[in-house]
């Protein structure tokens, strides 16, 4: 009995040591980011690196808003991210249900086609896609970014894999009870897939928030650009304002972390199992 509890203590200590070392490795770069965001540009790349004991340049956090229209960029990014995430969740979880729980001709082929297209690098079909979108009059509109991001194969693939993990017997039982497929999707699958939906929300949010190449090609007028394009504006032809980049990066990290903190509470064991019981 005694040995078991000492073992447990040792185990616990070990786990925490590992976790703390690990967290440090993860965090050092962010501490660096914050310290760099408070420096003059010329002082950032000095070796050995000064972690503290310098005069903080709080001005960087003011300059980022005046040097470029960062507020407009932030508003645009928020708008795009919310709309894309909404559509992505809706259409992906909807389509994934059919791929996971319904039988129909061509299912496997269609699914494989979905997955395989993820493998094609965007760089190779970007030009024809852009020309096509411009034909439709969508160049330099937010709608173009929404269309590009909202119907991805990725979301369908991910949701389908999570639905696979939910026992078929649940759906069968519901069908016998006379529920239509739409009802099963709405009242059984959706509530059960909260962890998966949270994951997809986080990923879509992060992806859209950090997307650079899409907005770069499609959005040309200043009033429509996004945060990530703004970040790059601090790297100009003849200079690179790393102090400002770091300051803006720190700011832009906040919303994403908030979303993550809000949604990760759904990663709690037992939702699916209680569903089975009920």
């Amino acid at each position: 009995m005694k040995s078991k509890s000492t073992n447990e203590t040792i185990g616990k200590t070990l786990v925490y040591t590992v976790l703390i070392v690990f967290a440090a490795i993860m965090l050092i770069p962010f501490i660096w980011m914050i310290t760099a965001s408070l420096k003059f540009n010329k002082d950032i790349f000095v070796i050995p690196y000064q972690w503290f004991g310098y005069e903080p340049q709080w001005r960087n956090y003011l300059d980022i808003w005046t040097k470029i229209p960062l507020l407009t960029f932030t508003k645009n990014t928020v708008k795009l991210t919310l709309i894309v995430t909404f559509f992505q969740l809706l259409t992906s979880s909807f389509a994934a249900y059919a791929f996971a729980k319904l039988r129909f001709r061509g299912r496997d082929f269609l699914f494989l086609a979905y997955v395989a297209t993820i493998a094609i690098p965007w760089q190779s079909y970007m030009v024809p896609q852009f020309l096509f979108m411009r034909r439709l009059g969508l160049a330099d509109t937010h709608l173009s970014i929404i269309i590009l991001q909202a119907f991805t194969a990725f979301g369908v693939f991910m949701m389908r894999q999570f639905y696979e993990g939910i026992p078929d017997s649940l759906c069968e039982a519901a069908r016998i009870d006379g529920m239509s497929e739409y009802q099963i999707y709405l009242s059984i699958m959706l509530p059960l897939s909260k962890p998966a939906l949270s994951t997809l929300t986080i990923f879509t949010f992060v992806n859209t928030w950090n997307d650079f190449l899409g907005p770069l090609i499609y959005l040309t007028s200043e009033s429509k650009k996004t945060l990530q394009i703004g970040l790059k504006m601090f790297i100009s032809q003849y200079s690179a304002e790393y102090g400002l980049i770091m300051a803006a990066s720190c700011i832009s990290l906040i919303p994403v972390v908030i979303v993550f903190l809000m949604l990760q509470k759904y990663f709690v064991a037992g939702i699916a199992s209680s569903g089975v019981k009920g």
Partner: peptide, 22 residues
């Protein structure tokens, strides 16, 4: 048909704007 109706909202957008160019 029910299955296709589930897939359609995503697939139509996907086919036109991604699969086509691919």
């Amino acid at each position: 048909l029910v299955a296709y109706s589930f897939i359609a909202p995503n697939f139509i957008g996907f086919a036109i704007f991604t699969l086509g160019p691919i």
